[in-house]
Each structure stands twice: as structure tokens, then as C-alpha cells.
Design a protein around this nucleic acid. Structure first.
Lengths: 116, 116
DNA sequence: CCTTATAGGGATTAATTTATGCGTACTTGC
DNA sequence: GCAAGTACGCATAAATTAATCCCTATAAGG
């Protein structure tokens, strides 16, 4: 059962489009890791081990529904699933790397800010 | 009274540093508008008129506390306040413009994604 | 047979963030 | 005096997001 929003979404600028779709706690990280070759749910979960399995699964599902990631289900005896980035997902990589670079290059001051 | 987090903050990568500090609904927009010359609380509120005054004030206060914005209080008869970007706030502008550009250049597909 | 691994999910609670109700205080202009 | 403008803030409710509880099912390895 999908959660129905009560307050309308904001689509008035690119910042809000980004936020409405990619605000999830692990979404950008998932896209990044998928881009670096971690494609299977189990792999991703081990990579992001502080996140609960179901939270990651929910975020991955949303990424699929919104068209950032596609899900490939293999018809093998033992269940096997792989995620891969769509073109839309790939278009996000430069943005993610930019965000990551900003954060890392300001790490010292940002960590101090977090303690205030 | 500041809200005390019960779940520890994630500082493990630049993406999380960014998110912990700038996840607020209007924060990036406020930084952007301040950079374009809208410096006073009233101006900003009229510019972002769908947001409640108190919500904007809270987000501005956090931006000040975290060092993205500084607040100048003029000692005039009629209250007058101006915000301006710190160096840290300015360092964020390219990132914001990058996000905004990504969102706008993918607007069509993103708006469709929001309806799913 | 039992453990570990694969992958999944509905229902509920907890945590966090945003919105709102109801105030303060001062000044200018009519 | 009163309305409108400047700016601010506590306390609470509502909305949203994340975390957790308790499950299913199959296969391989020992």
C-alpha cells in the first residue's frame, strides 16, 4: 500500500523536482554503488550494512518506479536479481559526484557544524 | 528548544554530510535567493510565499547556526535584518546550480515520474 | 535435518520534519 | 487610536519518513 501524500508536491523548480524524487535516506548512495558495479540486493545491503534490509528494498523499489533504476529478475533456481541504472539514473551521476566532492572537500567544517 | 536526535547522524561520506545539514525543505532555495540579492526575511517570505513564515525562520536559523549564512541585525527603530552568505554558503552555489540544472533539464520525465 | 544463503512483504511503531495556533513588541501612516 | 508593516518565538498538531516485528519460499552444503 503506497502512502498517499496530503500536501501537494512542489514542482516549481529543479531543486524541488530533485528533492521530491531523491530525498530518500539511501537513494543517492544506492545509485552510486550500482554505478560502481554492486548490482545485487544482497551486495548492496552488505555495502550499506547500517541500513535495514527493508528500508533499502523500499528505496530501491521507489528508484525503479520513478525510472532511475531497472530491475532484472533472473529465472534461476536460487533467486537472483540485479539492478542497473537507466539513462535517467546515469544522468544523475555527475550531480552525485558533485555533491560528494563538495561534502568531502568541506568535511572538517561540516563535521563541526553537525556538533552545534 | 532544539530537537535531540535519537538516531546518530551519518558522517561517513560527503553525500551524508550534505544531507544531514541541508535536507530542509527550503534551505537550498533560501541560499539561492540570498545569493541573488533577497536578503531580508520579509523579502524571502514573499519570494517563497507558499512556505510559512515560521518554517522559513527555522530553516534560516539552522543555516545560520551551521555556518552557511550570517545574520545582520540593524539597530534601527523599525526592525531590520539581513542575511548574507558565508564562504561556506557561497561554496554551495555551484552545487545548487548543478542540482537545479539537472532538474530543469529533465523536467518532463521527472514530472511524469512524480505521477506514478 | 538443520543452517545459511537467495529474495521478498504486510503491518505497525518510532523518529523526524513540517505546519499551525496563538502570542510578543515596536513604528509609521491615516 | 487603529491598521499594517517590521521581526520573532513557544508549544503543539499533523504529515512524512525510517525502522522494526513477524512472516513466506526455495536451494545448496554439511
Amino acid at each position: 500500500m503506497k502512502y498517499e501524500k496530503k500536501i501537494p508536491m512542489r514542482k516549481d523548480c529543479g531543486l524541488h523536482l530533485f528533492k521530491e524524487l531523491l530525498n530518500g535516506k539511501w537513494k543517492l548512495m544506492l545509485i552510486y554503488y550500482i554505478s560502481t558495479g554492486f548490482k545485487r540486493p544482497g551486495e548492496l545491503q552488505r555495502k550499506i550494512c547500517t541500513a535495514d534490509r527493508r528500508v533499502l528494498a523500499n528505496q530501491l523499489n521507489e528508484l525503479v518506479v520513478h525510472g532511475f533504476v531497472s530491475k532484472v529478475i533472473f529465472d534461476t533456481k536460487v533467486p537472483k536479481v540485479e539492478y542497473e541504472l537507466t539513462d535517467l539514473g546515469k544522468s544523475l551521476l555527475p550531480v552525485i559526484l558533485n555533491l560528494e566532492a563538495w561534502g568531502e572537500s568541506n568535511r572538517a567544517v561540516l563535521e563541526r557544524a553537525l556538533t552545534v
